[in-house]
Design a protein around this nucleic acid. Structure first.
Lengths: 253, 253
DNA sequence: ACGTCGTACCGTACAGCGTACGGAACAGTT
DNA sequence: AACTGTTCCGTACGCTGTACGGTACGACGT
């Protein structure tokens, strides 16, 4: 009954690596930093599935097994990739708080930046989630994103909850966007094309009268969004509702 | 430059299979339905990673390649698994709309049911997302979940947006919950244990004075939730804010 | 009753994955 | 110059999804 079944990252190993200095100890110039960067490069252009230890090693001109001198395994490498990507979110810890529009402007900025991050690095959404990362950049991100909420009338626990709510929403809509982009890419059809091709089959097989509300609403939404869903619209609409709800919470004191 | 790189499901094949009758054409009694059920059984108890074609075949007492007579490939099988799981959400199409508390009560019911679904079948959150499923049960789910929102003062497009917002929130918090449960399971420590073990290391390496807000809020939230995060609380808090925001949208007409 | 044909079943094989293991080669210290 | 510790990496194992081709059965026409 060994624990090998689920190849999750060892959190302690990840933690140590994340906070270590990533110095260059090797004689071939191989570095943890370089490994991470190569892996991210592959993931950005070919997706997370294409990131194999062999591919990373080849890109670095190095034997596959040499990677294991610097990194415990693939799961921990993924953790490092994620934290590194977080590092590119904000130039300054005060960027969100410095935004105009108070806490609401700050949260909208946070949402937009995270959205961009996921659009540039869709592989982050495919990364299997073990324990959340907790590297230096993740902590910095947390600090930066909490600051706009400080001193606006929320308790500490509520600040955390509000931020988590916004981030969950962005991640969810970004996931939708990524899967649609992916589907579009490897089917070669965009949303509208795919629907005009497959609509007859669906109409034939699914009796619209059994689903009156669904067919009416689905058609209206499909026309409006030019497809089954519009991630950008979902992001904006949801964020507006969420921030309205938070405003009500703050005002109701 | 073939399209084999990303083994996503062929949507047209999935569609056809999803809406076909799943009759038993074989001489060994092997059925699409049986394959799906076996796969779900494995996924429920051992996770989606453990669902390999060989494992499924073995559970059915059948040669591995026989599965391919009934199912085009693993990606399409995953689509079938998801739609089948959707089928267990509501006994009746009117269950959400029949809930007390108007549209709000309906949405809370929808959220609770989806939450339960993800708790019982966490593998649904690991399923790689190509184009969304669109099987018969998914359509039925869509119909059932839209009905509480019908005739409350929302446009058709807004009904779709509100539902998507709620579902995205539930899925996101459920994902958090699943990853925490998984981390807890294969580390053998619960949240509090893990934190008391690893807190010293983190304290040593991370300078709390650089992250004043994060450390203050993080500590408060950690104490409140007895861990890094509390998925159930995140679900309730977020849902309340979201529905408040939707109420404001409806009232502001 | 018997040949014929379509198709369900499945054994073998291949390319790719993560990584355990052990040997070789080099750096630094004594 | 010899020893020691670390870095580098070739080989091998068990696993994955599935392409291909052979076999054997059920049904149907005569």
């Amino acid at each position: 009954m060994s624990a090998k079944r689920a190849p999750d990252a060892d959190p302690a190993r990840s933690l140590a690596l994340l906070w270590s200095s990533h110095s260059r100890p090797g004689r071939s110039g191989l570095t943890v930093r370089a490994i991470i960067e190569a892996a991210i490069g592959i993931a950005d252009t070919e997706g997370l599935d294409a990131v194999s230890m062999r591919q990373v090693a080849e890109r670095l001109g190095v034997g596959t097994m040499s990677l294991y001198t610097h990194v415990p395994g693939k799961a921990e490498l993924t953790d490092l990739m994620v934290d590194t990507a977080y590092g590119r979110l904000y130039d300054d810890v005060d960027a969100p708080a410095a935004q105009p529009g108070g806490w609401r402007g700050g949260m909208e900025f946070v949402a937009a930046r995270n959205w961009d991050l996921y659009r540039r690095h869709p592989w982050m959404l495919q990364a299997p989630g073990g324990r959340p990362v907790l590297g230096p950049n993740a902590v910095l991100k947390y600090e930066a994103e909490l600051r706009p909420l400080d001193g606006v009338g929320l308790s500490d626990v509520e600040m955390d909850s509000v931020l988590a709510l916004v981030l969950t929403h962005v991640e969810g809509t970004a996931r939708l966007g990524a899967s649609m982009a992916r589907a579009q890419q490897d089917s070669g059809m965009n949303e509208t094309e795919w629907w005009t091709v497959n609509a007859p089959l669906l109409d034939k097989v699914m009796d619209a009268s059994r689903f009156p509300v669904a067919s009416r609403v689905g058609e209206a939404a499909g026309r409006e969004h030019q497809g089954a869903a519009d991630p950008a619209h979902a992001l904006a609409f949801g964020l507006a509702r969420i921030l309205d709800g938070v405003a009500a919470l703050i005002a109701g004191r």
